[in-house]
Every structure is written in C-alpha cells, then in structure tokens.
C-alpha cells in the first residue's frame, strides 16, 4: 500500500527561506521559548555536556547537530527532565524547569520523541495517541472510576482531537493496528502523533529521520514543517542528515565533545571553520 503524500509541493527549502525572511521583519522569532544557560552534565568522571548555552526562539525550528557522542541526546534528556543537570539552568516560558520531573515538564507543554522509537507496543495506534492526551484529562483516576459519565464526555472530546492528529499525519488506515506491528517509518510518524497529542508548545525530536530512506525522510520533513507552521509548535530537533537540517532549520546549534562550538543560521554554521574542523577532522 503506497503511503499518501502531502499534497503541497516539494520545494521545502524555498518555502522555508521565505518564512525566515518574513520573520526577520516581524520579530516573531525574537522571544525565546526556551533558554539553556551554562548547562553541564557529568556522569562520574565523564563530562557529557559542558557549559552549553542556547536560546530557542518561539516559533522556530532549531536543530542540534554534532558528531556521535557530542552530548546531543544528553542535552535533550536534561530539557525533558530525564537527567538532572549537574550545573546550569533551563528556563521554559520564564519558568525554571532545571529540577522538574519528566511528567511535570510534559504537562507544562514540552513534548518529545525518542531516538529508538518508544511507542507502547501493546497498544493500538489510536490508544498510543490517546495516551498523549493524558495530561489534559481532568478526571482523575479514582474520579473517572466513580463518575463514569464525566470521564466518558471528556473522552469524546479527546478522541476528536486525536482523530484530527491522525488525519493530519495520514494515519487513518492503521489507527486500530497495534503499534508494534507497523513498519519503521510509520512508527516514527505515530510517535510524532503521540507527542503532538500532548499539545506541546515546544516539541523535542530526537533523530526524527534516523534510519529512514529518502522518501520517508522527505515525508517526515514536510510533517515537521507543517506542524511548525500550521500549529505554531516550536521545534528543537537532533538530526544527522545535513541536507534536511540545512533545509528546514531556522537556527543550527553545533555540539562537539559536549561543548557548543557554533550556533546561527544554517548557511553561516555551514561555513564556520570550527564546524568544518569538527566534522572533517582538524588540519594541523
């Protein structure tokens, strides 16, 4: 069964450039939604992240790149609360979240996907996405047992929201299938859907295109752009495919050995000597 393709054209780069230029005048990207200041993470003697600072402008797509072991996932894990920073501060919408727990951070409006897809294999696609609504369900567990009516009415609203996401990501045909039975590219897309169900204002994507073929990558890139533009979700993503990163990002942050070595517009970063040295090896 061939997957339906998004209807709009293939010229991602062109659309993006237009958006960036427009935004430079409107100052839409100026206020950061997330700021990271002097963040470090040590595991015993190993320093995974060293004094990293960055700001993610509201409404932007920011990519973190860097060689393997540069500390990208560690940085993401600190933002989503899985790791406690050894030093430094993480501020989301003017609130310090450096010491918050993952479920608290999720309910504040930060969603995420995982490098190795972390879908709930035993649940269907619909249930996986519905679980993303967890933070928005007001009826508590005990309450939902006792006042079944309240929970049922709430459930209808949540299901409608999930159907919107399913339609948006073109998952209609597989909504009742168990997530574990799906092919790789689709599971990645379901995971994106589940993260969207949280209705995040900031979405962290850990290698959303890792392990995909070219066609799947292009599909995913379009979904990321659509979510960003149509739903206004700010994106912070880790990605290895340079072509995609340069195409879709407003800002690129480069990490190497746990340190930030460059940050800026894709074209500037690409030309940065420190970045070239980190990727191609230093010339002595």
């Amino acid at each position: 069964m061939p997957l339906p393709m998004p209807a709009d054209g293939p010229l991602i780069a062109e659309r993006r450039v237009a958006a960036v230029c427009a935004s430079d005048q409107s100052e839409r990207y100026v206020t950061p939604i997330l700021t990271v200041e002097g963040l470090s993470k040590r595991f015993g003697g190993v320093v995974a992240v060293r004094d990293v600072s960055l700001a993610v402008p509201r409404g932007s797509i920011t990519s973190i790149i860097g060689p393997n072991g540069a500390g990208k996932t560690s940085l993401l894990n600190m933002i989503s609360g899985f790791y406690r920073p050894s030093e430094g501060r993480i501020t989301f919408e003017a609130r310090d979240i450096s010491r918050s727990r993952p479920n608290q951070i999720a309910s504040l409006g930060i969603g995420r996907t995982f490098q190795n897809i972390a879908l709930f294999g035993g649940l269907t696609v619909l249930d996986n996405i519905l679980l993303g609504r967890h933070v928005h369900m007001r009826a508590g567990v005990l309450k939902s047992v006792i006042y079944w009516g309240l929970a049922a009415r709430e459930e209808i609203a949540h299901r409608a929201r999930c159907e919107e996401i399913i339609e948006f990501l073109r998952l209609q045909d597989i909504r009742k299938q168990p997530a574990s039975a799906l092919p790789y590219g689709l599971r990645k897309r379901v995971e994106l859907g589940r993260a969207l169900a949280v209705e995040p204002r900031l979405l962290l994507l850990d290698e959303p295109m890792g392990g995909m073929n070219q066609e799947e990558k292009e599909n995913m890139a379009r979904f990321i752009l659509d979510v960003n533009q149509e739903w206004g979700v700010t994106m912070l993503l880790i990605e290895h495919d340079m072509g995609v990163v340069m195409d879709i990002s407003d800002q690129v942050v480069v990490l190497d050995s746990g340190q930030r070595i460059a940050a800026g517009r894709p074209a500037d970063v690409q030309a940065d000597p420190a970045v070239i040295a980190a990727y191609l090896g230093k010339t002595r």
Binding site: R112, F120, V135, R194
Partner: peptide, 15 residues
C-alpha cells in the same frame, strides 16, 4: 499499561 511498556516514554507523556 503504557508505563509497563516503557516507563520513560510514559513519563514524557505526562504520566
């Protein structure tokens, strides 16, 4: 059920 499946992912969903 989600938590048993993957604790980390469940907590990222706000569980």
């Amino acid at each position: 059920r989600a938590m048993a499946d993957d604790q980390q992912a469940a907590s990222a969903m706000g569980v």
